[in-house]
Simulated scan of single mutants.
Amino acid sequence: MYAYIDGRLTFKCPTYIVVETGGVGYQINISLNTYAALGSAERCKIYTWLHVKEDAHTLYGFADEGERRLFLHLISVSGIGPTTCRMMLSSITPNEIQQAIVGADVALIQKIKGIGAKSAQRIILELQDKLKKEGIESLISMPNHNTIKDEALSALIMLGFSKQVAEKALDNVMKKSDGDLTVEQMIKQALKNL
């Protein structure tokens, strides 16, 4: 999988962009949210996800890591594919989607083209606990400069621990240590306490 593509933005329209890097132009499908975030930039760093099917390999691009993570949560819901996710991210902002899921706002999700009542309820049912567990701000806002604690916290959340429990374990590790721990050491110590 490609984590991101950094290069010259050679073409941009509301549905896709072409980013040239290393002499190769990558056509990347985007949402309107990403289109707006790119503005008039000549260079961009676009976070990507590769969808592989029998007849096509399709790249989807996102303005930031938070939008990509929301997209990945949404496609994990049965019956919701990448095209529907892109429609959702084009209809309302990622932050509004996240708040609607956490707040069980079926009506807002149902306003999105292609999402009926059953799909909206399924999205809320399958993702509400996951998004609450990660914390409301963890999905959309990503720290620009991760500290060792931030990286360890992110890893523990990815392993399935709630944000509050993981933070408490990391705080205990930091109190007991002299501050010279690596990310790996911090994670291992926290796992012993969990």
Rank of each mutant, 00 (worst) to 15 (best):
K132H: 13
T147P: 01
D105Y: 03
K133T: 14
A155V: 10
L156Y: 01
R122M: 02
A104W: 10
A100K: 08
I140H: 04
D105E: 09
F161L: 13
N95I: 09
S154A: 15
L159Y: 06
K130M: 08
D150G: 03
I115F: 07
L159I: 09
I123K: 00
D105I: 02
E137A: 10
G160D: 11
S154I: 02
I92G: 00
S119I: 03
K133S: 15
V102N: 05
Q98M: 14
K149E: 14
D129W: 08
I157K: 02
G114A: 09
M142Y: 11
D105Q: 04
G160T: 04
I136R: 10
E126D: 15
N95G: 06
E151A: 05
L159A: 06
Q99C: 10
L131T: 04
I97R: 01
K132T: 11
H145D: 13
P94D: 04
I97Q: 04
P143E: 01
T93I: 07
A117P: 09
E96K: 14
I123V: 12
M158D: 15
S162L: 11
Q110L: 08
N95P: 00
A152M: 08
K132R: 14
Q128N: 13
I148N: 04
H145I: 10
L108Q: 09
G160S: 11
Q121S: 09
K113T: 05
L125Q: 10
I92K: 05
K130I: 11
S141W: 12
I148M: 03
M158E: 15
I101G: 00
Q128V: 08
L108I: 06
E151T: 08
V102F: 06
E151P: 00
S141V: 11
A155F: 05
A120E: 00
I140M: 11
A104C: 11
K113D: 06
N144T: 13
Q99G: 12
Q98G: 13
Q128I: 11
V106N: 03
A155Y: 01
E137F: 10
I97C: 07
L127V: 04
S119W: 01
E126W: 02
D129P: 05
Q121W: 02
V106S: 01
R122P: 00
A117Y: 07
A120V: 03
E126Y: 00
M142F: 13
Q110R: 15
A117S: 13
K133F: 07
M158T: 15
L156D: 01
E137L: 11
I112E: 04
S138N: 09
